[in-house]
Amino acid sequence: MARQTPESLLELPKLGVTAVEALIDTAGEAVRVTRYIGAAGPVGAEAAATRLIGQLSHYDRTILARRVWALQPEPLQVVADRLGVSATSVARNLPRALDRVRELLADPAHQEVAEQTAALRRAVGPCAPTAAVSVELCRLGVDPEGGIAEFLLHFAGPYARRHQWLETTQEPGGIRAVLSALNRVADRDHAPTTQTLLDALAAQGLAAGTAISFLQEHTDLRCFGDVWGCVQQSGVRVGPDQRYRRVVAG
């Protein structure tokens, strides 16, 4: 835009005076925001995300917060009623609004938000207990129950609730992908050690604390000394083909 003049813009097809004035105003605002952010320096995850979201219109913020990055999205019609528009209008404009957020995330002016979501992705991994995720969000200075937390978790994952856990919805998946990795361990070793299992889970992106919680809550494995095995309620060991098969309901 810096190389353009109002006259050169008016020579482009389908651009009138009003459109050119809007382009100039938008470009000027983009420059102002970029300079302000550059001068302010790092401000923390909450403030950086709030600043990015603030560049969206009220309409876009509402449909995205309610339909896209909410951990429990609202029905389309409910969002439409909030805005006083049709459900068709919300559905039609949703992809455009999401593209706008992605543009902002790719903007160097909002690099801090991209860095914070990347850090959150590394900390949470493919899945984690909601309590552990809340601790990580607090460490970033973000209210775990607020809309900014949902925004960051969406672009770090996106993540969805699975009972008392959050799991990524991206391929290769969350909890089921981790269980598949454990099944591969079972194929090689019918009595894996703690370190063997921790190494396998670390390769999937789980921290040590999360890994132990995962073994206890999402599998029938139990630790005997430093060896892990599956047992039935009677205490009889289950065959290898039934290892690691218990998954949370749903």
Results as ranks from 00 to 15, higher is better:
residue 248 V to M: 15
residue 186 A to E: 10
residue 6 P to A: 15
residue 137 L to V: 08
residue 217 E to A: 14
residue 244 Y to D: 09
residue 20 V to Y: 03
residue 34 T to M: 06
residue 33 V to G: 01
residue 62 T to P: 02
residue 240 P to R: 14
residue 133 V to K: 02
residue 5 T to Q: 04
residue 31 V to L: 13
residue 242 Q to L: 13
residue 17 V to P: 08
residue 78 V to I: 13
residue 104 L to S: 08
residue 177 A to D: 06
residue 84 G to F: 01
residue 102 R to Y: 08
residue 87 A to R: 15
residue 165 W to D: 07
residue 231 V to K: 10
residue 238 V to Y: 02
residue 137 L to S: 01
residue 103 E to C: 04
residue 151 F to D: 01
residue 201 L to C: 04
residue 16 G to W: 06
residue 101 V to W: 03
residue 182 L to Y: 07
residue 220 D to M: 09
residue 132 A to G: 11
residue 228 W to T: 01
residue 116 Q to W: 07
residue 136 E to K: 11
residue 121 R to F: 00
residue 118 A to T: 13
residue 126 P to L: 12
residue 186 A to T: 08
residue 95 P to N: 09
residue 105 L to S: 10
residue 73 P to H: 07
residue 180 S to Y: 10
residue 7 E to M: 10
residue 216 Q to Y: 03
residue 190 H to G: 13
residue 219 T to S: 06
residue 15 L to W: 06
residue 108 P to G: 12
residue 9 L to S: 04
residue 111 Q to E: 15
residue 113 V to I: 13
residue 77 Q to T: 11
residue 58 H to A: 15
residue 187 D to T: 13
residue 92 R to P: 02
residue 31 V to N: 09
residue 236 V to K: 15
residue 15 L to S: 10
residue 186 A to Q: 03
residue 140 L to H: 09
residue 70 A to W: 02
residue 94 L to E: 12
residue 102 R to T: 11
residue 217 E to G: 09
residue 198 L to N: 10
residue 51 R to I: 05
residue 180 S to I: 10
residue 120 L to K: 04
residue 231 V to L: 14
residue 119 A to G: 08
residue 243 R to D: 12
residue 38 G to Q: 15
residue 206 L to F: 06
residue 196 T to L: 07
residue 74 E to C: 07
residue 243 R to P: 00
residue 62 T to I: 02
residue 175 I to P: 01
residue 2 A to Y: 05
residue 32 R to Q: 12
residue 57 S to C: 07
residue 99 D to W: 02
residue 78 V to W: 05
residue 100 R to L: 06
residue 71 L to Y: 02
residue 13 P to T: 11
residue 193 T to N: 13
residue 142 V to N: 03
residue 97 A to H: 06
residue 219 T to K: 04
residue 140 L to P: 02
residue 79 V to W: 00
residue 156 A to W: 02
residue 222 R to S: 14
residue 216 Q to D: 13
residue 221 L to M: 12
residue 74 E to Y: 10
residue 117 T to W: 03
residue 32 R to Y: 08
residue 214 F to I: 08
residue 35 R to N: 14
residue 176 R to A: 14
residue 8 S to L: 12
residue 70 A to R: 07
residue 161 R to K: 13
residue 182 L to W: 05
residue 92 R to C: 00
residue 1 M to F: 04
residue 75 P to E: 15
residue 59 Y to N: 06
residue 248 V to W: 06
residue 146 G to N: 05
residue 97 A to I: 07
residue 190 H to E: 14
residue 65 A to S: 15
residue 143 D to M: 05
residue 171 E to C: 09
residue 92 R to A: 11
residue 51 R to W: 01
residue 189 D to H: 12
residue 173 G to C: 09
residue 16 G to V: 08
residue 75 P to G: 14
residue 199 D to S: 11
residue 5 T to Y: 03
residue 198 L to S: 14
residue 189 D to P: 03
residue 142 V to Q: 02
residue 213 S to R: 14
residue 155 F to T: 06
residue 202 A to I: 00
residue 163 H to W: 12
residue 80 A to N: 10
residue 167 E to M: 11
residue 23 L to F: 10
residue 152 L to P: 00
residue 216 Q to T: 14
residue 1 M to L: 12
residue 166 L to A: 05
residue 136 E to F: 03
residue 30 A to T: 10
residue 243 R to I: 08
residue 188 R to Y: 05
